[in-house]
Design a protein around this nucleic acid. Structure first.
Lengths: 329, 329
DNA sequence: CTGAAAGCGCTAACAT
DNA sequence: ATGTTAGCGCTTTCAG
């Protein structure tokens, strides 16, 4: 392997000078710079990050914690993170926890062991206590999902408001019997979206029925199908469903169809996230758009600032209701 | 920061002994082992990968090159890679090239600079010459897409055969006018799947029409929609479409629907990959199932073996035709 | 503007 | 079984 030593010898300078050229420091005369550059080219030298990383005591790796790689919502956020990270010479390690504490701990170890410089946590199931502990010594940002009083900076949207608007839209187009397809209320976003749902109903004098609020274990198509099955079998069947994830909503669409009912005539459906696929279903899905890319980009910037030792403030981003066929007519 | 030195001092042993305990070597008496473990716990010591990595001259990172993170096909493969990698204490760096040579080069630099120990390339658009050059000094495996005579080990399925079976199925259920929705033929898999398409037609004495073979720039819903628009407007409209990706097929489904035609009665559709979505469409999509998870797992094993300096052989995996509603009736 | 030298945290001969 | 020591490849004072 060619090292900085070889280059120094070849160029007839010291390793320090080679290092200076490598790092673009201007304290090098153009004559020696050229000598060094020629040596580098001639020897086909590639500086090793291993040496540099040890010396500078950084890994230039950002860790991203997501529950599942299968949810397109995260993918779009990741794109935002990635672009900012790359532009600042950071690389990202995608860590899928499957909401499994054991896996989570393996990933946390990565930052403890200096394999990563910081964490963007998007996992609702993350152990907040561990996270807080970790945040004492390491740079951490919470993205989308967060623990309110953890003291760890976060970026998110106003879930309660978004949910409120989705349900209000359903009420406005004439629905009185609106079901909520929610995920487990141990997650903050689930509690927030439920609050918005309730506020919209109450504001219009509609009774909040316990049996209209269905919970799913996870956010996947199949879970949406199963939950929809329950809703369809309700004795006073709802005429509209607000699902807290497009994946659930799409599963619901499928199930409604399978049962011979029509969307939106028999049951209207609203999803959440505006994933690409939500525009490919038949009918297309009304949904809440989150600025996923921007959320990721800002989260990355926040984290890098944090790594640099700066103080950063939490951020709340806007959302938008996108009306499509599943609530039309 | 607590280092191995501190632990050694605290335990009253040498750093070598601490290192031995850390790496689970059995050449340590249980008495000293306990002393060391106590010191570690007391000092809350976490070994730094940075030091170890430099010393052992490895990064324990595997680089995965994919064209786009948005195609669920890759996600499933990645899960397979990830599981094997984690079990062997490797981490994976997901690198999305967007089929952009510039980005590709940035990622290649990561292995040149010892930031990664090896590469699993899944990018059809990869620069084969660069890859070959890189493979001289670094561990590389090609996954799914490959360059035939590059000398770089690969794992894939028999694309020609898979395509042949898909088209044969369409012919068997009565279709004579079968369109091929292919991607750019600069990609090997596109050429192979075209070959299978042609073979199936020829075997049944059906003329291969140039205008029945449509090409898309990328594998996305919208590209499938656009391509389907062209197919619908053909003067002798095909009654069946074989798309080389589920994403394209789902776009096609959407477009057929939008034009007022019915699947499968007016147009039958077959996709490729069996991504999760393919079972959520209406109607559900007939498709070729690839063993994505297994493909990833084996690719990871191959790469790690390669990193260890072992010789590995290329692998061809099985595929399967999954018949669903889009070709029923 | 350049060089000498220290040292980041760890592992692995080699010696005992 | 344990300790001593060299050194992985790099950056960064500190001198000159």
């Amino acid at each position: 392997m060619t090292t900085i030593q070889h280059v120094a010898k070849q160029a007839g300078v010291s390793v320090a000078t080679v290092s200076r050229v490598l790092n673009g420091q201007n304290k090098v005369s153009s004559k020696t710079r050229i000598k060094v550059e020629e040596a580098i080219k001639k020897l086909n030298y590639e500086p090793s990050m291993l040496g540099r990383n040890l010396r500078t005591s950084e890994s230039r790796i950002l860790l991203i914690l997501i529950p599942s790689i299968s949810n397109p919502f995260y993918l779009e956020v990741i794109k935002g993170i990635e672009n900012i990270a790359m532009s600042q010479n950071y690389n990202i390690l995608l860590c899928e926890t499957d909401s499994n504490p054991e896996r989570e701990n393996i990933y946390f170890d990565l930052v403890r062991k200096k394999m990563a410089d910081g964490i963007i946590s998007m996992d609702p199931a993350v152990n907040v206590e561990t996270l807080k502990k970790l945040a004492e010594k390491h740079a951490i940002i919470q993205c989308s999902e967060y623990a309110e009083d953890s003291g760890i900076p976060y970026i998110t949207i106003n879930n309660e408001e978004a949910s409120y608007r989705a349900v209000k839209h359903l009420i406005k187009i004439g629905h009185q019997k609106v079901a909520l397809m929610n995920s487990d209320e141990k997650y903050l976003y689930a509690r927030q979206r439920k609050l918005g749902y309730q506020r919209a109903l109450e504001e219009h004098g509609i009774e909040v029925k316990q049996e209209y609020m269905i919970h799913t274990q996870q956010l996947g198509f199949e879970h949406g199908q199963q939950a929809m099955k329950k809703i369809i079998n309700l004795k006073d069947r709802p005429t509209a469903v607000f699902a807290v994830s497009d994946l659930l909503a799409i599963g619901a669409l499928k199930e409604i169809n399978a049962s011979g009912l029509k969307v939106p005539d028999d049951v209207a459906v609203v999803g959440f996230d505006k994933i690409d696929f939500s525009n490919m279903t038949n009918p297309t899905l009304t949904t809440i758009a989150q600025p996923m890319y921007r959320m990721g980009a800002i989260a990355a910037k926040m984290l890098i600032d944090r790594i640099k030792g700066e103080q950063v403030d939490s951020v709340i981003l806007d959302h938008e209701l996108v009306i499509r066929e599943s609530t039309l007519g």
